[in-house]
């Protein structure tokens, strides 16, 4: 079966912590069109929250900026979520991905963001350029069901 894009949405939000909840519920509402299981929808909410929070805290370091979120789903029930910022970038991606590593120890966030993102999805890709920004791409294939066009 040739992989075809069925639907997509784009969201551009200011990097404000109050928008973390809005972003995860907006994305999960969109993905709800695929009739995901409760666990799948919870996983999607969590990974979006992690990625958006990373952009706000680490990318922009609580300064002004924008977070761009793109969500696409395909006929094979793969959901592709891209969260992009134009913040400071990540100097050492491997280090940032280590469980319990945090670039913000005072923030008490646990350092589990990337571990959760990779565990709750099937594929995670991080592209980052210092002082240019970071793009996190997450892919998750939902349980099999009929895709409504």
């Amino acid at each position: 079966m040739k992989k075809e894009l069925i639907n997509e949405m784009n969201l551009r939000i200011p990097a404000l912590s109050v928008n973390e909840g809005y972003a995860r519920y907006a994305v999960s509402s969109f993905v709800a069109q695929l009739d995901p299981t409760l666990e799948e929808i919870a996983d999607i909410r969590t990974v979006v929250s992690e990625a958006v929070t990373n952009s706000i805290i680490h990318g922009y370091r609580d300064k002004k900026g924008e977070v761009l979120i793109s969500v696409k789903y395909y006929n094979d029930r793969t959901v592709k979520i891209t969260v992009r910022d134009r913040g400071c970038g990540i100097a050492d991606i491997e280090k940032a991905m280590q469980p319990f590593y945090t670039g913000d120890p005072a923030g008490e966030r646990g350092g589990m963001g990337f571990t959760i993102m990779s565990s709750f999805t099937d594929k995670m890709k991080i592209r980052s350029i210092l002082n240019k920004g970071t793009t996190v791409t997450l892919e998750k294939t939902l349980h099999k069901s009929i895709v409504r066009g």
């Binding site: 929070t53 008490e108 966030r109 646990g110 350092g111 963001g113 959760i116």
Partner: peptide
């Protein structure tokens, strides 16, 4: 209703 790694940090702290 929802908890991410910030909640985890809150609990561990």
């Amino acid at each position: 209703d929802f908890m991410d790694s910030s909640g985890l940090g809150l609990i561990l702290g």
